[in-house]
Design a protein around this nucleic acid. Structure first.
Lengths: 188, 188
DNA sequence: GCATCGAACTTTAGTGTTGAAGTCTTCAGG
DNA sequence: CCTGAAGACTTCAACACTAAAGTTCGATGC
């Protein structure tokens, strides 16, 4: 159980280890299934660390995590990499208002263009620029390298099994939490 | 491959399914390992959905997800459930400035108290109130119910295996991304 | 004991987000 | 045509967070 932060001498009491945290929860909350809690806590922590890692990597390209999400969404839409602000907002889990501002910024930085649809003047078309696409490509290369490194300790069988189990959980959460158009936080 | 969102008729083009998304990435980015991408994307999506679910549940108690994080951190510290703003900020991955404001709010709502340390007037002590503790307990009950439901499709062996694999990933990410006191986003 | 340094917290300015109200375009009737 | 309604985006006000500057108390050196 290594050392408890509070008693481990001079250095600042960091975030407790997973095992410490689960032990603490069990002290405070009797009917806790440690196995369940281990999975859930590890999931949460892993995700946070990964997001921090992604953020650092794309920062080296001069873009924010938020901007990278927009680039990803446009690329996923397929050539010619166009979507309206409303559709982008829906997929990113933002309000249209926030989307307007993000597009402002990104258009200013030359990552996307924003134009009115000639056939329907009320619509706006956001399109990826070549620079935006190449930023996406660089970010994608860094992300996949990182992901490969992250999974290096797992065999191919384990990776398959892990993916399959996660998808089962995903189906379950989508089943019990129908989403209702709720704001989602980030993107994959 | 079912339908591409843009052509799927009247209903709004929702977030693509995991398989659609991975197929789209493969079209745009040749050297992508679908197995790795499946794990990573499922992780990200699962986490988002779970955070939305947690947020909805604690909202029913009249507290925000952010406030729940503070309650959890104080309880984890153990009786008498006291921490300074700086320590709280560190554990929550916030700046001290943000912590000041959160404590303002939560003290106003009666979830915590804020007092100066009598022995060291420059320090502040944030302490959980009885109301704060009972809110935490209710939230904890809802959260563990939800987590149990989430994992219901997995056998005990599978849960153990999943937890073990996630912890291996966590170790790897902590090893390659030493954190450097960086801001982490949420809490488990 | 007085001055200085450092630690712990708060305040300020700037950015990004939400929710609600507002604007502009299109479409359907009358 | 002209009006009304609906849709798509933008603007506005309020809020939460970050980074940096400011404040206050305690400790250290002389």
């Amino acid at each position: 159980m290594s050392d408890t932060p509070e008693q481990s001498g001079a250095r600042s009491p960091q975030e407790p280890s997973l095992d410490e945290q689960i032990a603490a929860y069990q002290r405070e909350f009797r009917d806790l299934d440690p196995q369940v809690e281990k999975v859930v806590s590890a999931l949460g922590r892993l995700n946070r660390r990964m997001n921090v890692a992604y953020g650092r990597q794309v920062a080296d390209l001069g873009i924010s995590n938020a901007e990278w999400e927009v680039l990803k969404t446009l690329v996923l839409a397929g050539a010619p990499y166009r979507l309206g602000p409303g559709e982008l907002a829906k997929r990113l889990g933002l309000t249209p208002a926030a989307m307007t501002h993000r597009i402002d910024r990104m258009a200013g930085e030359g990552l996307v263009t924003r134009d009115r649809d000639e056939n329907n003047r009320v619509r706006v078309i956001v399109e990826l620029t070549d620079e935006g696409r190449s930023k996406w490509l660089e970010a994608m290369r860094m992300a996949t390298d990182f992901e490969e490194e992250l999974l290096q300790d797992l065999s191919s069988e384990e990776r398959g099994l892990l993916g399959e189990m996660l998808i089962r959980l995903l189906r379950r959460v989508e089943h019990t939490q129908p989403d209702a158009g709720g704001r989602l936080t980030d993107l994959d």
